[in-house]
Design a protein around this nucleic acid. Structure first.
Lengths: 340, 340
DNA sequence: TTGTACGCGTTATCAC
DNA sequence: GTGATAACGCGTACAA
């Protein structure tokens, strides 16, 4: 595949390559006749500018990187779409990389991206491991925007976040208002900030309503359907069933639901369930799962806009932290039925 | 963000930039002492090679494009992961673009990618609209591999496909063997080759078993959950309920299931359901949905490998067509229960 | 209005 | 073993 260059066009028309370049850059110092002619022949010859030469010139790639910790849940796909919407409009391409919950892989991804000269990175971290390195990048003036799984320590850049604590609190309160008494929490990995926040929200909601928080009522479960299944199985075997469970995320809740149904328990009569981070599944399973919806598309769009601001500001920008609002979608899985 | 170049290193060490370049390219004509020194200082100075300069030289981008017609269903995400696995190992980056079921957008995407000098494209088409253009690209020597939604006409390149006809036939036969008699088909858009194939498989299976195919038993539905819901609603209103439905894909089947359940019909007792293109949902909904599973990861891996072959062969390659095998996952939604 | 010359960062090809 | 020098394709002062 041989690409046509401005030199080819110049030769074909017996003019200099700079004239061709001028024609394409809408410069005033070229006769409109010549411009027309050049553009026409360029089209005929199938010319398209070599992006690498351009980037070599302006030291800017019009590419940004997106690094996510996982690809399994729809959450990151949806955020990705939001980012794309904003970025493509501005002519940016997006290189997507998956860290697969490994902070080493994540560091590798970021290094691959920076050595590919992306103009900035949107990042959701697998863990807090590499924060120092990212901090040093930011200090050098490299634009990074964090979302979802962000650094817990202060960092000098923009962030898009969701108030996990608040919404976990609301979700738990919802169960309390339904007058469930014995409420358990299926928690995520304790190393993960969002898990911690959600757990804290759970605990504080119980405290506020003067419900004692039992050690055994918080079970570190994991983020996958299989995790929910495993812990639910254990719980059933132990014979210590709660009236309601608030799970760290939808997959954990759905896993629990599957096992409960398998053992013949009714939802929400026997055990009520609430998930977190609305997934498509929540509406579709039976019974539909109550869940906290995050504005995934908006998270993506906001992160993209913040990154663009940083890129375009060339150094002097004010780091912003945007906290987006969610919504508790109450569905059948958590509604206390009237006693028959 | 100022990048360090080989010239900076050369200056720092008072040597020529060509020596620096040689050190990095493991050339034999350089003293190993100097090489060591160069590599060490390079690391200290935080040098990383400028990929655009490199690409400008070797006229090759180590990037490939992936163009998919939609992002909603997990199918393309999963294929994408397979592609990534193979490509990243070889040092390729993947630019992902979404055509959103529009052939104009698709053409635009492909043009963006080629003008970005990707080394090849993996493509699933929104429609047959642009086949002539893709054909001309291929004839010019530009590597393209098709999968899933491929050109129906002969095209001189590699393809990864799934025998939609065969598996639709099997899926329908499964319903017949369960001794359902009145079987309907929720078909996809008739413009889409895969829809046509699945419909044909359905028809031929009925014919083989001497079941007459009624005009009314094939309903053009669409590919989304909402499509399945809408058509099921109509069907219920018309009072012409089948015993079983084979849907063009899982979302259509799931939409139908939701509406059936809403109206109090039991699955599979009142209406049995079979989907196509296994989704995560199939296992999770209640009752679990029988569906044809496609080997998504393998589709991605195969397409990636075929594309690499084409890229590396530099012109003389033998177009291959790989037909991958699927699996009919039989679940509760399609099993005829014994009469009580 | 047009063309010349140079730089962007890299590698390949020569002389030395 | 080393170091100039010329590409790669494009943009742009500056000279013509």
């Amino acid at each position: 595949m041989k690409y046509v260059t401005i030199i080819d066009i110049a030769k074909a028309l017996n003019i200099s390559k700079s004239s061709v370049s001028k024609a394409f850059n809408n410069r005033s110092d070229i006769k409109s006749d010549t411009r027309e002619l050049i553009l026409r022949t360029a089209k005929e010859m199938g010319y398209s500018p070599n992006p690498f030469a351009k980037r070599l010139m302006n030291q800017c790639s019009f590419q940004i990187g997106l690094v996510v910790p996982e690809f399994i849940n729809a959450f990151f796909h949806e955020v990705m779409i939001g980012i794309q919407e904003v970025m493509f409009e501005k002519g940016y391409q997006i290189l997507i990389m998956n860290s697969n919950e490994s902070s080493e892989k994540e560091l590798e991804n970021v290094k691959t991206l920076t050595s590919n000269m992306v103009d900035g990175i949107i990042l959701s971290m697998a863990s807090q491991e590499n924060v120092a390195y990212y901090s040093s990048l930011i200090d050098k003036g490299f634009p990074i925007v964090f979302f979802n799984r962000i650094p817990t320590k202060q960092i000098n850049t923009s962030k898009v976040l969701f108030d996990d604590y608040k919404w976990a609190f609301f979700a738990t309160e919802h169960l309390i208002y339904q007058s469930f008494k014995k409420i358990f929490h299926f928690a995520g990995p304790s190393s993960m900030a969002i898990s911690k926040q959600r757990k804290l929200g759970f605990i504080d909601a119980l405290k506020k309503h003067k419900i004692s928080v039992d050690e055994k009522s918080i079970i570190e479960t994991g983020l996958l359907i299989s995790d929910g299944q495993r812990e639910m199985e254990k719980l059933i075997n132990s014979g210590n069933l709660p009236e309601a469970i608030f799970a760290v995320n939808d997959p954990a809740a759905i896993g629990a639901m599957k096992i409960l149904k398998k053992h013949g328990y009714k939802i929400p009569e026997d055990v009520a369930l609430v998930g977190f981070t609305e997934s498509k599944l929540a509406e579709l399973i039976d019974p539909p799962l109550t869940s906290v919806a995050q504005p995934t598309n908006e998270i993506g769009r906001t992160a993209a806009k913040l990154l663009l601001e940083q890129i375009e500001s060339k150094g002097i920008f004010v780091p912003q932290t945007v906290i987006l609002n969610g919504q508790l979608n109450v569905r059948e899985s958590s509604i206390k039925l009237n006693e028959k």
